[in-house]
Design a protein around this nucleic acid. Sequence first.
DNA 1: GGACTTGCATTGTGATCGCAATTGCGGGCC
DNA 2: GGCCCGCAATTGCGATCACAATGCAAGTCC
Lengths: 228, 228
Amino acid sequence: MSPSASPASPRRPLTDSPTVHDQVYDAIRQALVTGRIAPGVGVSLRSLAAELGVSPMPVRDAVRRLVAERALAINPANKRLSVPSLTAARLEQLSQARLWIEPELAARAASQADAALIRALKAIDARLDAALAAGDVDGYMTANHAFHFAIYERAEAEVLLSMARALWLQIGPFMRVVFGRVGTVGLPADRHAEAMDALKTGDAEAARQAIAADLSDGMDKMRVAVGG
Amino acid sequence: MSPSASPASPRRPLTDSPTVHDQVYDAIRQALVTGRIAPGVGVSLRSLAAELGVSPMPVRDAVRRLVAERALAINPANKRLSVPSLTAARLEQLSQARLWIEPELAARAASQADAALIRALKAIDARLDAALAAGDVDGYMTANHAFHFAIYERAEAEVLLSMARALWLQIGPFMRVVFGRVGTVGLPADRHAEAMDALKTGDAEAARQAIAADLSDGMDKMRVAVGG
DNA sequence: GGACTTGCATTGTGATCGCAATTGCGGGCC
DNA sequence: GGCCCGCAATTGCGATCACAATGCAAGTCC
């Protein structure tokens, strides 16, 4: 694979406003969340760089960042990197962490919510339903992510928010497994309606419960998809 | 800054077994935890590299890693990096996260504890007391860190363990503030004894309570040091 | 005398080069 | 025919170079 062999589609004006590093980071992040990089298989730094049309340097930086966020794993012996394998133990720990952090963020956001947030959430939820009806897995997952973090960002809790981001990044491959096996059907958005109601009335505890229930629903599905 | 130290020295004991990146990472990490880098002041990549006698490249990698772990912050405008400032909101969030994750790790470790662990903990606690008596702040903090993570590593929960590590890294500067103002006195190690007893008997709930109490003690002190 | 502007030094970023180590594979040997 | 050794390609790591942007400071003009 020669470095000058793929200027076809990935050759983009990468040097716009953000740095190349950020673009590479987002690209790999997206590839991870959408499951384009299968867990277990090893990927090489140079191949990624060639695929993105940049030098290995920003790729290395992005990979280090993702490794620090536990979204990528690196074999100590090989030094080769791969996606962490999906084990029941990992899923259980990630679920437990999410079940504490994310309801907390929702509860904090309840006191900060306003009409604009509710409107934005309704719009996102509409996109989510549309993607669900169309069987658009990527669209559903994007909208679901947007819905949750539109809430969480209102909590004004930067530390917890960054932890939630890291958890979503790690649990992305699991989500892909869910939709790959059981499909997008059977994932009701009722919890989202409950969450929006709670935010509208500023009820922190109700928001906490709604998000906790939403997470539990999704994680139960992941559990059956992974564990058996 | 004196880059004439050894910018091009071909043979250094640095290239032993671990990589230069890891050494730089550990060096900056230690500097952060021990408070050698004061919060708010900006540090430069090249100055760090010159100080460590390496090229800016592994320093950049290490800094990216630390930024991803929220141990360092980077100004979006300046692009210059600094230690995150110590705010009450940050401390409160970090405390809340620790209060959930670390007792959980202790509880999980309770079922895995054996005599060897207890012996190791006793040795660490002895070093801790010695440092406390001698007024050795660095020694105390090192021993305290070792005590907690000797327990946590027994939990066999890699995800939660890495989260705990990141939290300690972020809360390090706060700890330095505590010892800079109120000194090392008045930090009883009784909770450590409680924790060891709980681990010895395999009592998960007692271990959880002991670690939670230990954290609460320390964080109360940080709270008064920062907020008041 | 004070504020603005212009010049230089410094910083972060990205690319290319060189090096050591590991992997994969082909040929030679038993 | 199977196993083992050795060579080549690939990979990651670190250094150096080059460039754009920012910070700082001295000089200049009002």
